[in-house]
């Protein structure tokens, strides 16, 4: 499903070179629920950006769904993001001027579906996250948990092969966080691959597998070790 080999990412400014990822290798199988953890500055975010085709990689190869995606141009990358990847962000990132329906509509527009098809998908995915009665509400009229559900509906409406979640519960209280995580588990069970970047230990348990990132590399340490690290960090 997702296969990164020796991926490196170097940020260069006039004076400094920062190695965000060094020889990073990772394989994620179809249907997995993987959590990615690590201390601040470990390269989690860079990994997420590269996995989501938001950034170029400096060297190495990245195969997604059996296709080498490391050399695509902007248009092709946009297409892959649009069709195969769903994003969920810590701060929800709903567009405040658009209502729920129109927010979910955004990626479908770029997909080029016709109107009935878009309407069907939007309604289905909003129903699925349990907000069928709120379709014409603006984001500001919803609670944080509900907003994140809308974001999930938006991510799922295009039926992506995998979801990238970046601290999906970071801005939520524990009760809301639980319900969002239940939803993610449900989605995973239904067959969608999920990669979740987080530093909350509670979330790690939800994943079937945990990857610990440190200094831009996958660390092969035992879970106890990274738990201790996290506690220290």
């Amino acid at each position: 499903m997702l296969n990164m080999k020796n991926v490196s990412k170097v940020y260069r400014t006039d004076t400094v070179e920062t190695h965000a990822l060094r020889e990073f290798s990772l394989t994620v199988e179809e249907g997995e629920f993987v959590s990615v953890t690590g201390p601040s500055g470990s390269g989690k975010t860079t990994f997420l950006n590269i996995a989501g085709l938001l950034e170029d990689l400096t060297s190495g190869t990245y195969e997604l769904d059996g296709r080498d995606v490391s050399q695509l141009n902007d248009k092709e990358r946009s297409r892959v993001r649009n069709e195969k990847i769903g994003f969920i962000f810590q701060s929800f990132n709903l567009i405040p001027e658009l209502n729920i329906f129109d927010n979910v509509d955004v990626p479908l527009r770029y997909r080029g579906f016709d109107a009935p098809e878009r309407k069907r998908r939007i309604e289905e995915s909003i129903e699925m996250v349990g907000l069928g009665s709120r379709m014409s509400h603006l984001p500001a009229q919803l609670s944080g948990g509900q907003q994140q559900r809308v974001a999930i509906a938006r991510a799922l409406a295009g039926e992506p092969r995998f979801l990238l979640a970046d601290e999906p519960t970071g801005n939520l209280d524990s009760q809301m966080a639980d319900s969002v995580l239940d939803l993610l588990t449900e989605i995973n069970t239904a067959g969608t691959t999920i990669i979740m970047v987080t530093h909350e230990l509670g979330l790690v348990d939800r994943a079937r597998r945990n990857i610990f990132v440190r200094d831009g590399r996958v660390s092969d340490g035992v879970p106890e070790l990274h738990l201790a690290d996290l506690a220290a960090g």
Binding site: D74, S78, R79, N82, N93, I95, V106, Y110
Partner: peptide, 16 residues
């Protein structure tokens, strides 16, 4: 900028 960067993430190409 935020709106734009979100649309990019959701699959809008530069051309769009």
């Amino acid at each position: 900028a935020k709106d734009t960067s979100l649309r990019r993430a959701l699959g809008a190409s530069k051309a769009e």
